[in-house]
């Protein structure tokens, strides 16, 4: 880490958080016109808009720290798979409604705790983004938690689907709470969030919700990691080829 300035590390950190938000926002946006009923279509879109908005704030900050004329769009549209550093859970295909809501719940529970910590970041821009994100996440969590309860404790089919979703997601949890030297270093300076400290309260909250939803905590022993190093599932490449289509087909233009 010695070679990297704090500014460069912060820039990379902002890109990571932007990637998380963009990729999840993109997955959520795929639901538009596909939700189980109209009210939910509107609600899911609001959540998608919040996450894409969050991505824009992180990317704009990264662009500012880059100081080389890059914009929020440079990060979203002009990087390839290996340069994306989102945590893997965000990129998984949207699956059925149970999968989308199970993922959303696990991430909302994480995101709210994360943003509450980031409120006291010594970096004022990150703290300001957190102030906005905390309000959004409170609402997101209320919604997604309710859905886990409804689907978990609804019909036999919904229970089955929710349990399957939780099982399929479980191995992507570990990565949420791991920090490489870049993040550890920034956390040491009070800039980044110490995510290792979030693990215990997150587990407690999630277990309580699953219990209330009559869902079992998976006893899986697998865990997949790699997002922060640009190692992804194959689905990300397809997501990017769609996301970046116009910018790749007609490079360098205003839209």
């Amino acid at each position: 880490m010695s070679a990297m300035t704090t500014q460069e590390a912060t820039r990379q950190y902002a890109i990571r958080l932007g990637d998380d938000a963009l990729i999840l926002g993109h997955r959520l946006s795929e639901w538009c016109s596909n939700a189980p009923f109209l009210e939910e279509d509107l609600a899911l879109t609001n959540v998608a808009l919040d996450f894409i908005g969050r991505a824009r704030m992180f990317y704009s900050y990264a662009a500012e720290l880059s100081g080389d004329g890059r914009s929020e769009d440079s990060f979203a549209y002009q990087r390839d798979c290996r340069e994306f550093t989102n945590l893997l859970m965000h990129e998984l295909p949207r699956g059925d409604f149970a999968f989308t809501m199970a993922r959303q719940y696990l991430i909302d529970e994480y995101s709210l705790a994360f943003m509450e910590q980031m409120l006291s970041s010594t970096d004022p821009t990150l703290a300001a983004i957190a102030a906005k994100a905390v309000k959004e996440s409170r609402y997101h969590l209320r919604r997604s938690r309710d859905w886990v309860l409804r689907l978990g404790d609804g019909t036999e089919e919904s229970h089955q689907r929710m349990q399957t979703a939780i099982n399929e997601l479980w191995g992507y949890n570990a990565e949420l709470f791991e920090m490489d030297t870049l993040e550890a270093d920034l956390a040491g300076q009070g800039i980044a969030v110490d995510t290792t400290a979030l693990r215990q309260p997150w587990s407690a909250a999630v277990q309580a919700t699953l219990a209330e939803a009559t869902l079992a905590v998976p006893e899986t022993d697998w865990s997949v990691r790699g997002g922060r190093q640009g190692l992804h599932t194959e689905s990300l490449g397809h997501l990017l080829s769609e996301l970046q289509f116009i910018q790749r087909a007609y490079p360098g233009l205003e839209w």
Partner: peptide, 20 residues
């Protein structure tokens, strides 16, 4: 108006539908 299963859900959807 809107459709919801219970008042709490109705309130959340009202927020999403009528106060965008």
């Amino acid at each position: 108006s809107l459709h919801a299963e219970d008042p709490a859900q109705a309130l959340e959807y009202a927020r999403d539908v009528y106060t965008r």
